[in-house]
Computed example of a mutant assay.
Amino acid sequence: MERVTMADVAKEAGVSKSTVSQFLNKRYEYMGEETRRKIQQAITELGYQPNYLARSLKQKRTSMIGIIVANIKHRFSTEVSHAIEEYCYDADIQAIVCNADDDPVKEKKYIEMLMAKQVDGLIIFPTGKNIELYDSMIHAKYPVVFMDRKAGDINLPRIVSNNIESAYQAVEHFVKQGHTRISIVTQSLTITPRAERVEGYKRCLEDYQIDWNEDYVINNPISDLQEELEKMFSSNHPPTALLAGNDRVFLELLKFTKRKEMTIPDDFSLIVFDNIQYAAVSTPAVSTISQPAAEMGRKAAELLLKQIQKEPVEAKEHVYPCELVIRET
Rank of each mutant, 00 (worst) to 15 (best):
H237N: 09
Q277D: 09
D8G: 04
I68E: 07
L53G: 10
D215L: 01
E172G: 02
K310Y: 15
K260R: 15
L305F: 15
T257Y: 09
Y134F: 13
I271W: 04
H74P: 01
Y28R: 04
K129V: 03
I131Q: 15
N246R: 02
L229N: 05
S234Q: 06
T329W: 06
A70C: 13
I289W: 00
S290Q: 14
D103E: 10
N246M: 05
N246W: 04
D92T: 01
Q94I: 12
G32H: 14
P321V: 00
G128L: 05
M64S: 12
E2A: 13
T62F: 14
T329Q: 04
R55G: 12
G200Q: 01
M147S: 06
R27F: 10
P238F: 13
E165R: 13
P126M: 10
P284C: 06
A279M: 06
T180K: 15
V15K: 07
V4M: 02
V185Q: 01
C322W: 02
I96N: 05
Q94G: 09
T78S: 12
R149D: 07
V325D: 03
Q94C: 13
Y28M: 07
Y110Q: 09
S188Y: 07
P321T: 09
I276P: 01
V319S: 13
I123E: 02
Q291S: 13
E328H: 11
E228I: 09
P239V: 09
A54F: 14
A195C: 13
I123C: 05
Q177P: 03
A42V: 03
V80R: 03
H82N: 10
A301D: 07
V9G: 04
V144I: 14
Q291M: 10
Y168H: 06
D102R: 04
E295Y: 13
R3H: 08
F268W: 07
F146N: 02
